[in-house]
Design a protein around this nucleic acid. Structure first.
Length: 614
RNA sequence: GGGGACGUAGCUCAAUCGGUUAGAGUACCGGCCUGUCACGCCGGUGGUUGCGGGUUCGAGUCCCGUCGUCCUCGCCA
């Protein structure tokens, strides 16, 4: 009795080389393309590892083989000579002469072009994600992400960190983003929340003496989506005890250096620069500066205060700022460019955009008449760091608006004027400009709510443990307090954030009070946490890095959907499985929940749902 | 919640100022082809122009509504 030959592969589709010539092999994979020349018939078989050309002999030419059919091909490896060699392909020196073909699975023509000749809409890609993910580009993206995360894991383990899992079903957190709620079947009327981050748990792990924790943690925030934001996202979360900022920075710098080397063969230079939040805002207008180009903001308040231009003077006298950007003459910024930039500025909320073509003799443009004297012109050029013929752009407004507008203009000009240097090679470390931004404000005023909120989160240590006298019963200006929160910024993207934490129960309670959370509410929502802090909490600090963003950025992509296997659309829908969706009334009853739809939807509810496109 | 862009064949797109039977490439099907590798050549199938209403002699095109996708502001401790 003879055993039927197995369909199982002996090699992958990216594996065969001239050294295998003469061997009988079995390949498994998807039909990428067919080229039937009549007397000879070629087929490319694809799997995650590559493409291999298969030659179909006459005897097998009648087997129906459509694109994306899944095959097992048994055959002999044959060498290719001269012009037959495909130098574009790793397996191009060989081909497999098929002796037997088994169709493991068939397929209709795919709705997504897998040859790479046309770009399919994201909508179709997400609906048929299982086909989209067959594309080599997507497989490369996911492989890169996997390598990157695993390299980080090794780097943390090498530094003595323990990977510890924390709950997904947890307690709703007041403050911050909207929670996803999960009704409890066992406890009618009560809800779990999905974690916005493992924040409280990792701090408690420090209280528990675990000393060094990390986790690849899924986080959930029920807020609107963006190209760089999903409802659920992944962080490399960590926390460490008996440390301060510099210890956290040094740990992460080693991790990033090792990870970039390991996953991408890039030699990062460490340490990364540090700058206080105030410095970042003053020099770049944003808290996540792109350091790949200059074009820094210049303060011209002193000049503005004494000039004849009423808009500038009143801005400064009213407590605002006058600042500007200097665009080198070589960029030939046109009137049309300036008009467009003014549109951008107004879109953000600026009242206008003043400009001046710098010149010792007064220059030109709307500001020229205020620079009529050589002294005034010279002083403005000096304040703006401008040379003859440079174009200066000015915003005069409230401090925060001035920075915000110029920060955005700076970023746009960076792109429009091509100020970002091109990488000299794939492993050029100069294209990765990291920086730490430190000492963010502790609180931010919320106009609508009429109260202060934590700028980072309420567990962030203040720069001054005495809270500028608040611990002694005084009442400081909350808007002026600095925190020990920090961000890691790469090329203008916020990769992650963290802080030194409050390890003192009394300070934690004081912060809650400052946020308007009274003793009762504190006890109900954070009682267990404050109690933990009061029972031997070590000083500790931590950080969390957004892995979706980091994976995308290190692949040169600006949309995190390209590094997430099953992402959601801008309206938070999973197009493949059509989630969210209605559930059976029995299911709702079981968890003691009844839907109360908004007016409009409620009126439509009895009608049949519209048919979905098929 | 606000703003902008888009929605036409399985896929990617075109269709002038509102005017003939809505086209092309690709895919698919059939035929030819012995060295292709996005094979080539010939032929063919394929459309409720997202959906609903309106204006008009006439709507893919204009108007209103609605649904969906993308970007963005708000939001995202």
């Amino acid at each position: 009795m003879t055993q039927a030959p197995s369909w199982r592969r002996t090699h992958t589709c990216g594996e065969l080389r001239p050294v295998h010539v003469g061997q009988t092999v079995v390949l498994n994979g998807w039909v990428q393309s067919r080229r039937n020349l009549g007397g000879i018939y070629f087929l490319d078989l694809r799997d995650r590892y590559g493409l291999t050309q298969v030659v179909i002999p006459e005897a097998l030419a009648s087997v129906k083989l459509g694109p994306e059919f899944v095959l097992s091909v048994r055959g002999k490896v044959s060498g290719r000579e001269g012009s037959q060699i495909n130098t574009e392909r790793a397996t191009g020196g060989v081909e497999v002469i098929a002796e037997a073909i088994e169709v493991l699975s068939s397929s209709p023509p795919p709705p997504i072009d897998l040859s790479g000749s046309t770009e399919t809409s994201l909508e179709t890609r997400l609906k048929y994600r299982y086909i989209d993910l067959r594309r080599p580009q997507m497989q490369r993206n996911l492989a890169h992400r996997s390598r990157f995360i695993n390299a980080m894991r090794r780097a943390f383990e090498a530094q003595g960190f323990l990977e510890i899992e924390t709950p997904i079903l947890t307690k709703a957190t007041p403050e911050g983003a909207r929670d996803f709620l999960v009704p409890s079947r066992v406890h009618p009327g009560e809800f779990y929340a999905l974690p916005q981050s493992p924040q409280i748990f990792k701090q408690i792990l420090m209280v528990a003496g675990l000393d060094r924790y990390f986790q690849v943690a899924r986080c959930f925030r029920d807020e609107d989506l963006r190209a760089d934001r999903q409802l659920e996202f992944t962080q490399l979360d960590m926390e460490m005890s008996f440390v301060e900022e510099e210890d956290v920075f040094a740990t992460w710098e080693r991790v990033m250096r090792d990870t970039f080397k390991d996953a991408m063969n890039i030699e990062l230079t460490i340490p990364f620069p540090r700058m206080r939040w105030e410095e970042a805002m003053e020099r770049f207008g944003v808290d996540k500066p792109d350091l790949r180009f200059g074009l820094e903001l210049h303060a011209v308040d002193a000049w503005a205060k004494t000039c004849e231009f009423q808009v500038f003077r009143s801005a400064v006298e009213g407590g605002g700022r006058v600042m500007g950007l200097t665009v080198a003459a070589s960029h030939n910024l046109s009137r049309k460019d300036i008009t467009e930039l003014e549109g951008v500025a107004k879109g953000i909320g600026a009242k206008g955009l003043a400009w001046w073509k710098a010149g010792a003799a007064g220059g030109s443009g709307p500001l020229a008449k205020f620079c009529a004297t050589p002294e005034a012109a010279q002083a403005l050029m000096s304040a703006m760091g401008a040379s003859e013929g440079d174009t200066c752009l000015f915003i005069a407004d409230r401090k925060s608006m001035t920075r915000k507008v110029l920060g955005e203009l700076r970023n746009q000009l960076g792109r429009r004027l091509d100020l970002i240097p091109k990488a000299t090679s794939a492993t050029d470390p100069a294209q990765w400009r990291f920086t730490w931004v430190t000492h963010f404000p502790l609180f931010e005023w919320d106009e609508d709510a009429g109260r202060y909120f934590s700028a980072h989160h309420p567990f962030t240590a203040p720069e001054d443990w005495n809270l500028d006298g608040a611990m002694d019963g005084k009442e400081p200006d909350l808007g002026k307090l600095s925190s020990r929160a920090y961000d890691l910024v790469l090329n203008g993207w916020e990769l992650g954030s963290g802080s030194v934490r409050i390890h003192r129960a009394d300070v934690q309670q004081k912060i809650f009070s400052m946020l308007g959370i009274g003793p009762e509410e504190q006890k109900r929502k954070f009682g267990f946490f404050v109690e933990a802090l009061s029972q031997g909490a070590p000083p500790h600090a931590g950080f969390a890095l957004g892995l979706d963003r980091t994976s995308a950025l290190t692949l040169g992509l600006d949309n995190i959907r390209e590094v997430i296997a099953f992402p959601k659309t801008a309206s938070a829908v999973d197009l493949m499985c059509d989630a969210p969706s209605q559930v059976d009334p029995e299911q709702l009853a079981e968890v003691h929940v009844r839907s109360v739809l908004p007016e409009k939807s409620a009126a439509e509810a009895p009608a049949a749902p519209p048919p979905t496109a098929s």
